[in-house]
């Protein structure tokens, strides 16, 4: 139990963001947390596909041009395009033909929030955006953060554990919101995987890759095998479990330890 850290829970972007700062708080760190929370609301106002007045909605409706959008909007759409190219079109800023870069925005927003805390002098913190995690430093000196991966079959249990002191962990799956990821290649909801967890160092990329790999379904496995990164752990709809090299069983539970 931290006796000197900062905790904060914020409902925004249709989900919940949890901040856990273990570096003892200074005025700068408190200000950075306030700024990070304000930033998440700003991201929601600009990027929400559900708010008719957001830049994304107005861009989609043709009442705003890309040139008149914030630079952040252009940057996010550029990154979506790059991820689309890298994944053979399995990631897109327009799933189902409708502009909605949410598959990248949440991870990107968390990554930036984490950077604000880090820059303000809080090396030990963890930001969780609705189940996508950016963790730096540790919960205590020389200790790694331990991230539990929800078992999609029973959300009160953990299917796997990831630990490290510089982690980005993103999971895509059907456990919370059903078949909501559309495979851009078919236009239909992806069904081959129940859950895939991707582990890297940058949550913008890690979050988008989790979405793309979930959409790939069975093709995620050869895609990952052909590349040196990222780490991934998947549970398939047919009841199998597979992982990239580096995962090992610890007390019978798949475990990834990053140094």
């Amino acid at each position: 139990m931290p006796d000197a850290g900062l905790r904060h829970v914020e409902h925004v972007m249709g989900t919940v963001f949890s901040f856990d700062v273990r570096t003892p708080p200074t005025p700068e760190i408190r200000a950075a947390l306030t700024a990070a929370v304000a930033w998440l609301h700003r991201v929601d106002a600009v990027f929400s596909p559900y708010r008719p007045d957001s830049q994304i909605s107005r861009l989609r409706d043709g009442t705003l041009t890309l040139a008149d959008c914030d630079r952040d909007v252009r940057d996010v759409l550029d990154r979506c395009a790059a991820l689309g190219a890298e994944t053979g079109g399995r990631f897109t800023a327009s799933p189902g033909g409708r502009l909605d870069p949410s598959g990248l925005v949440k991870g990107w927003a968390v990554e930036h929030a984490s950077a604000l805390l880090h820059r303000a002098g809080a090396p030990d913190h963890c930001v969780n955006g609705g189940g996508d995690v950016r963790a730096r430093g540790g919960p205590a000196p020389d200790q790694p953060w331990r991230v539990g991966i929800t078992d999609p079959a029973d959300r009160t249990r953990l299917a796997a554990v990831v630990e490290g002191r510089d982690l980005a962990v993103a999971t895509s799956g059907t456990a919370e919101r059903g078949l909501h990821i559309v495979d851009p290649a078919t236009g239909r909801p992806a069904t081959a995987l129940r859950s895939i967890t991707v582990v890297g160092r940058d949550l913008t990329r890690t979050d988008a890759l989790a979405t793309a790999l979930f959409a790939m379904g069975d093709e995620a496995r050869p895609w990952l095998a052909a590349r040196p990164a990222p780490h991934a752990y998947a549970l398939t709809a047919s009841g199998r479990a597979w992982a990239t090299p580096g995962w090992h069983l610890e007390n019978g539970v798949p475990h990834l330890r990053l140094t």
Binding site: V133, P152, S172
Partner: peptide, 9 residues
């Protein structure tokens, strides 16, 4: 366990 990753709630 310090935090949880899972499908977006």
């Amino acid at each position: 366990i310090d935090t949880i990753s899972g499908a977006t709630y």
